[in-house]
């Protein structure tokens, strides 16, 4: 189908984007890569009056080293994030996750900021950002602010982004030396995750010193699996059975969706299995 008619502007600065969003009112929508928004528009599940395109805001494509953090511009594409040397070095989980999103065509267009702002709980990047304690930078009519990933995701397709605000960057604390893996289970290879697990581990003296686990499509927002993270601390890195057993609790306490791809009970089981695989591969990456 063809989208409902709308107006369109493509400003060149963040200030102009914010102004356009303010002028456009409640029905104005930001478009970045459009890989989530255009399918929604085509199916007429949304009818914005104005699209404010970020494509000419070149500053939002930058990926830079900011001391203890990496700052990834909101309009950096999944392809760019997955191949960027800084991201691969300091936040391998983000690079690996970006490289698993959709398919090659979608990764050329889709952007990290757009994917996070869309906040589909089956979207991949949220779990990875949560796992690495990332945060989002937003700019709006009242200035700029930084929101922790855990506070950004509020509900199904709902974030802490206020009207008139735009996500400008994702801030990821460097995780040099950590092993990581994103393990995704899909029905068809480029389909949305039934469940996926983002894992990052730090190994010290042959044991897991710290573990971080993010869950995709296990609730109305991306989640952290805190109990499994705790259970993994102290486990011998070489003992894959023990790693899997500790990670198996990842789905406990969650309330995942019930749809034709799986029941909540099945998804909780799957989360534990995938967390085991993800953790073992993350440990292998640094062992």
């Amino acid at each position: 189908m063809r989208p409902v008619a709308f107006d369109y502007v493509a400003p060149t600065t963040v200030e102009e984007v914010v102004q356009a969003l303010s002028d456009g009112g409640e029905d104005a929508t930001v478009i970045s890569g459009g890989q989530s928004l255009l399918p929604v528009l085509r199916m007429r599940m949304a009818d914005p009056s104005l699209l404010v395109d970020l494509r000419r805001v070149d500053s939002l494509r930058e990926i830079r080293d900011d001391g203890d953090n990496l700052v990834i511009g909101a309009r950096a594409t999944h392809r760019q994030v997955s191949t960027d040397p800084l991201v691969r070095q300091h936040a391998g989980l983000i690079a690996k996750t970006a490289g698993s999103i959709g398919d090659p065509q979608i990764r050329y267009r889709g952007t990290i900021g757009g994917s996070l702002a869309h906040a589909d709980p089956a979207g991949d990047m949220g779990a990875a950002v949560l796992a690495l304690n990332g945060s989002l930078e937003l700019t709006g009519p009242r200035g700029s602010r930084t929101v922790a990933g855990g506070d950004f995701f509020v509900d199904y397709f709902t974030t802490a982004r206020e009207p008139g605000e735009v996500v400008t960057a994702v801030r990821i604390p460097k995780h040099d030396g950590w092993g990581s893996h994103y393990e995704k289970f899909t029905v068809v290879v480029q389909a949305w995750a039934v469940v996926a697990v983002a894992a990052a581990v730090r190994v010290e003296g042959g044991q897991v010193a710290e573990a971080r686990i993010g869950l995709t499509n296990m609730g109305t927002t991306p989640l952290r699996a805190a109990a499994a993270e705790q259970a993994l601390v102290g486990v011998a890195a070489a003992d894959t059975d023990a790693l899997r057993a500790a990670a198996a609790t990842a789905g406990e306490g969650t309330n995942p969706p019930d749809d034709p791809s799986g029941t909540p009970e099945y998804r909780r089981h799957l989360a534990g299995v995938l967390a085991g695989r993800a953790v073992v591969k993350a440990v292998e990456a640094v062992a």
Binding site: Y8, I31, G34, L38, P39, L51, D53, R79, P104, Y108
Partner: peptide, 27 residues
């Protein structure tokens, strides 16, 4: 498919393969 899944509409946009059903002409 008109749902961004099938890739039949793939073209190169500035040398990069994209699904032309998932790009606005103005973009």
């Amino acid at each position: 498919c008109d749902t961004s899944n099938c890739g039949a509409c793939t073209v190169l946009l500035d040398g990069e393969s994209v699904k032309s059903c998932s790009v606005l002409a103005v973009q």
